[in-house]
């Protein structure tokens, strides 16, 4: 699923586009260490953590699309980092649970 398709499903907007970013599973988590330990490659990460470290975690575990919930703003350094690392960022007014429901056709991400 592409970032644009995900944005449409979660009623959000693509804040940072990334060429060819495709996600095949979903992981929901605000604890970045938990994400590091359990998220798999090519997943959508659904979180409220709107800062640069989230991009670092996505890069390390291989999350391709990041969905930031509750319309939290994307700081400039985070947007720059995402663009540099090829991580697409979608911002949505929905909660993590509502996003998970909206993306229910994708399987849970496992590692």
């Amino acid at each position: 699923m592409t970032a644009a398709e995900i944005a449409e499903k979660v009623g959000g907007t693509v804040a940072v586009a990334a060429d060819g970013a495709q996600a095949t599973s979903v992981y929901v988590g605000d604890l970045l260490s938990d994400v590091m330990g359990h998220a798999g490659e090519d997943c959508v990460l659904v979180t409220i953590q709107n800062h640069l470290n989230t991009i670092a975690v996505c890069t390390l575990v291989g999350c391709t699309v990041l969905v930031i919930c509750h319309s939290r703003p994307i700081p400039p350094d985070m947007a720059e980092g995402a663009a540099r690392e090829g991580v697409a960022v979608v911002v949505t007014p929905l909660s993590q649970y509502a996003v998970a429901l909206a993306l229910k056709e994708l399987p849970p991400s496992t590692h």
Partner: peptide, 15 residues
């Protein structure tokens, strides 16, 4: 608040 300090760092590394 930044999503760290959950006490999983050492156990994740060990795992």
């Amino acid at each position: 608040s930044l999503g760290f300090g959950a006490g999983m760092g050492l156990s994740n590394s060990k795992r």
